[in-house]
């Protein structure tokens, strides 16, 4: 388990060095999108229309934050469960999306697509939304404001803590971690 500091955008070469279990601290811009935003993004791709942000070498964070209190950048902002995005992720990975941040397992199709496209899946600690929000320095809605918590936000983060779950080599921390501690 290495400690790695990453700054976005991230190249395929940099991402390929990550291993499942690595603790990664991300700085730079990341984009938020969850269920409803993913649906719209993939509809745009199907219609050959431009996405609201350049997705190449970027990271998407599956999150729907709480509203910011006055004077605050953002409310609580922990990850949401990722498998609901499985249907959409391969399309975005084919466009050069370099990584996803969420929590919970991914489908085999998404894992295969990550290997093919040289991308990773990382988890933030689910249910630690108040703590995680402290690493978010700026937040701006850039698309789909009508979706409320599901709007796409451009976040500027500093040392945003995540753990690599699926690397480009086919490792899976969820499977390997549970295997290691299973007693029957």
């Amino acid at each position: 388990m290495a400690k790695v500091y990453l700054t976005t955008p991230v190249s395929a070469e940099e991402i390929s060095k990550l291993k499942a279990g690595d603790q990664v601290y991300i700085s730079g811009v990341i984009y938020t999108a969850r269920d409803a935003a993913h649906k719209r993004l993939v509809e745009l791709v199907e219609q050959c229309k431009e996405l609201p942000f350049d997705i190449k070498d970027q990271l998407i964070y599956f999150v729907g934050p709480t509203p910011a209190k006055p004077g605050k950048v953002i409310g609580s902002a922990g990850p949401t469960t990722s498998y609901r995005m499985d249907k959409y992720s391969p399309t975005l990975l084919d466009l050069g999306l370099r990584g996803m941040i969420g929590k919970g397992g991914r489908s085999q199709e998404v894992k295969d697509s990550m290997i093919k496209n040289k991308a990773v899946y990382m988890a933030a600690v689910g249910g630690a939304g108040a703590l995680i929000a402290k690493r978010i320095k700026k937040a701006e809605v850039i698309a789909y404001e009508d979706l409320g918590p599901e709007a796409i936000r451009k976040l500027e983060v500093e040392n945003f803590p995540v753990i690599v779950i699926n690397d480009v080599h086919g490792n899976d921390l969820y499977l390997q971690g549970a295997e290691k501690y299973r007693k029957y």
């Binding site: 934050p65 709480t66 409310g75 609580s76 922990g78 600690v125 249910g127 630690a128 939304g129 108040a130």
Partner: peptide, 24 residues
């Protein structure tokens, strides 16, 4: 490490009166 983060998160939420989790 995760459990420690959860404890720290609980403390922040309580003192700053912010939600423990974004899924309220």
């Amino acid at each position: 490490d995760v459990l420690n983060q959860l404890l720290e998160n609980v403390e922040i939420a309580r003192t700053e009166r912010v939600p423990i989790c974004q899924d309220t």
